[in-house]
Design a protein around this nucleic acid. Sequence first.
DNA 1: GATTGTGAATAGATTCACAGCT
DNA 2: AGCTGTGAATCTATTCACAATC
Lengths: 207, 207
Amino acid sequence: MTQPDDISPLALNRISVYLRCLRHLQTEGVSRIASQEMARRFHLSASQIRKDLAYFGEFGIRGVGYDVAHLRERLERLLGIQREHPAIIIGAGNIGTALALFPGFHSGNFRIVAVFDNDPNKVGTQLADVTIRDSHELAAGVAETGAEIAILAVPAEVAQENYQALVDAGIKSVLNFAPVQLELAPEVRVKTVDLLIFMEELAYFLQ
Amino acid sequence: MTQPDDISPLALNRISVYLRCLRHLQTEGVSRIASQEMARRFHLSASQIRKDLAYFGEFGIRGVGYDVAHLRERLERLLGIQREHPAIIIGAGNIGTALALFPGFHSGNFRIVAVFDNDPNKVGTQLADVTIRDSHELAAGVAETGAEIAILAVPAEVAQENYQALVDAGIKSVLNFAPVQLELAPEVRVKTVDLLIFMEELAYFLQ
DNA sequence: GATTGTGAATAGATTCACAGCT
DNA sequence: AGCTGTGAATCTATTCACAATC
């Protein structure tokens, strides 16, 4: 399997989008699809689909198109989601709780294996499949569960220190919901989801 | 005020980031800042800051830098968030509820003025500042409140129909949390936030 | 005949480097 | 002296168009 690590974030996002489309097609019983038809159905660009896919290997059949099931499997392996990824959530507030209950993660082969909070009233209570644990047990929890991905859902003021705790615990990737510019550790990948930035983008186009 | 509408989404996102940085600087009492210092503090590119800002007008003072308060005000006006934007939420499930309670919106000059759900058990109950209303009252609610932005937080299966209802009700921008490729109406701007795509991006880099 | 895979062409975004202000 | 604003240069991404393949 080709596995270039210089893929652009844009192309990587598109791979995820293609995967979502393929899953959808599969539920409809479509077994083969051409780039043009896929572009039409999901409002994408046919030449871009071909270029993106060809970049990782020749997945298609000329004159025919792409095999939906096969391509799906290849893309899942490419993204590394052919196996289940254990993930943890830090912060059982509104957003952390909503994410713990989010059904989409299951379908994407991610599983929430632990939730941490520093509020003694929350520690010990049940949330989705897990019991909320004290934040002090973070390092132990990460070691036990083998979690590599963490979802950081704590208030902005304490995001940096919690991020540092995750880094120290050996987490490799962080999805951050706190609206702050984190001081990053070089070996830990961070993706920040800033709702306010999305809203501001929408506000701009209202004018 | 320069107001080109051909600004790239990338540049627009950066403007939001600059704004976040400026607010932070203001709380620290910094009144003037140079592009280089700002780049260093927040891990940005100095020449890009200058280019982005210059694109909308000459906001800086040569030899000195940028006036924090003044620049902040200009950027807020540029994004159209100098006035408060009423927003509504469709779907009072986990994510909708978390967003209704999200304190960040207040600081960004957005206000949740109504929440809609189709579950009779939820309709009539209080959530944050508002009483949850029945989804059938959507059009009336939008008209009453003057809401222009909607947050779509319903299950994937019903996202398309709810989106259509928003379009019909006269909403101009939608922040969509359902992991689907919506069939878009040309006059309504949509920004989709797909948590699974973020997770998949992180998973890729674990390899 | 149809569709992929791909080099060439175009378009877009970022960085460089320095003239122009304060 | 120091920093912005900006044209030129570079780098990156997308689209085009067609030869290669089934």
